[in-house]
Design a binder for these strands. Structure first.
Lengths: 153, 153
DNA sequence: TTCAAAGTGTAGCCAAAGCTACATTATGTA
DNA sequence: TACATAATGTAGCTTTGGCTACACTTTGAA
C-alpha cells in the first residue's frame, strides 16, 4: 500500500469552515420542511379571499399537484395545527395558520417588489420569489425593505 | 343539503393567477431536486482544493449529515454522471461535475457579496445564501452582479 | 507484524411529497 | 327523484434524504 501521508486536516486553509457550512445547510433543510406548509396556507388564504372558500381541487390547481397530494399534505397540516379539515368540506385556516399566511404574504410581497426594483421583469420576479422567499431571514428581509424605501421615496 | 351556489370561478379576481403560481412552484420543486447535487459537487470541489482529496467523512462533516447519507447520495450522483466513486477511495468530480461546481461557486460568491453589500453581516449572508442561491435565475443573478458593480466602482 | 481506531460500506427503518387507479360522496339538472 | 359528473377520499407504489446499528477495510503506530 502506498504511504500517502494524509495531512492532519489543515483547518486554516478551508475557505468556508465546515461547521458554519454544515449549520447553514442544516438551516436550509429545516426551512425546506416548512416551505410546503407556507405554500399551502398562503394559497388557502388567497383562495378564501378571492373565492370565499378553499377547496381541494382549487388548491391542487394552484399548487400544481394532484388532489391526492393536497389531501395527504392537508392531513399533516391539520396535525401541525395550521388548518381545520372535514371530509367533503371546505378548508379553513386556524389562528396560527392565518398568522403564518399573513407572514408569508408580507414576505412574498417584499421579495417580489425588491426583485422588480432591480429591473427584473415581474413574471421572472414571481418565479424567483417563490423559491427565494422561504430562505430570507428577518435581517435580509429588513434589508430588502430598507433598500426599497430608499430607492423610491 | 344547502344550496350554496358555487360561483363559477371569477378568474379575474384572483390576485396571482393559478397557472403562473403553479408553474412557479413546479419550478421551485425542480430546483430543489438539484440542490443536493449542487451542494455536494461544490463541497467536493472545495475539499479537493483545500485538502487534495474529498473523502466521505469530510463530506459528511461539511454537509452536516451522516456518512450513510453521503454514501447513498454519492451513488445517485454517480448515476447522474457528476462524480466517480470507488469503494474506499477518494471521490472525484467528472467534467460535468466540475462545471456544475464552478457554476455554483460563482453563483454563491455573487449572492453572498450582494447580501453583504446590503449591510447584512457576513455570517448571516452565508446562511441565507445557502438557501437562496439555488433559486436565483440567471436574470436575477445578473441583476445582483450589476448592482454590485454599480455600488463599488 | 499485529491490531485498534478511523474510515467506509450495507441493511433496514422513517417521513415527506410526488404519482395512478379506484371508491365514495355531493350536486345540479333533466 | 334519479343520475351523471365533479369533487373528494383511499390504497398503494416511487424517490429522496434523513437516521441507527452493525460489518468490513485501511492505516498507522506499537
Amino acid at each position: 500500500m502506498p504511504t500517502v501521508k494524509k495531512l492532519p486536516r489543515p483547518a486554516a486553509k478551508t475557505v468556508r469552515p465546515s461547521a458554519l457550512q454544515a449549520e447553514s445547510l442544516r438551516q436550509t433543510r429545516r426551512e425546506h420542511a416548512s416551505e410546503t406548509a407556507e405554500d399551502y396556507v398562503e394559497a388557502i388564504a388567497d383562495l378564501a379571499a378571492s373565492q370565499g372558500e378553499a377547496r381541494v381541487v382549487d388548491l391542487a390547481r394552484r399548487l400544481g399537484v394532484t388532489h391526492v397530494t393536497v389531501n395527504r399534505t392537508l392531513a399533516r397540516l391539520q396535525r401541525e395545527g395550521y388548518v381545520r379539515v372535514q371530509p367533503y368540506r371546505a378548508i379553513f385556516l386556524t389562528d396560527s395558520g392565518r398568522v403564518l399566511a399573513a407572514d408569508c404574504h408580507h414576505r412574498h410581497g417584499i421579495v417580489v417588489a425588491f426583485l422588480c426594483s432591480l429591473g427584473i421583469p415581474e413574471k421572472a420576479a414571481e418565479i424567483d420569489a417563490e423559491g427565494i422567499e422561504h430562505h430570507v431571514s428577518p435581517a435580509t428581509l429588513a434589508a430588502f425593505a430598507r433598500q426599497l424605501k430608499a430607492n423610491k421615496p
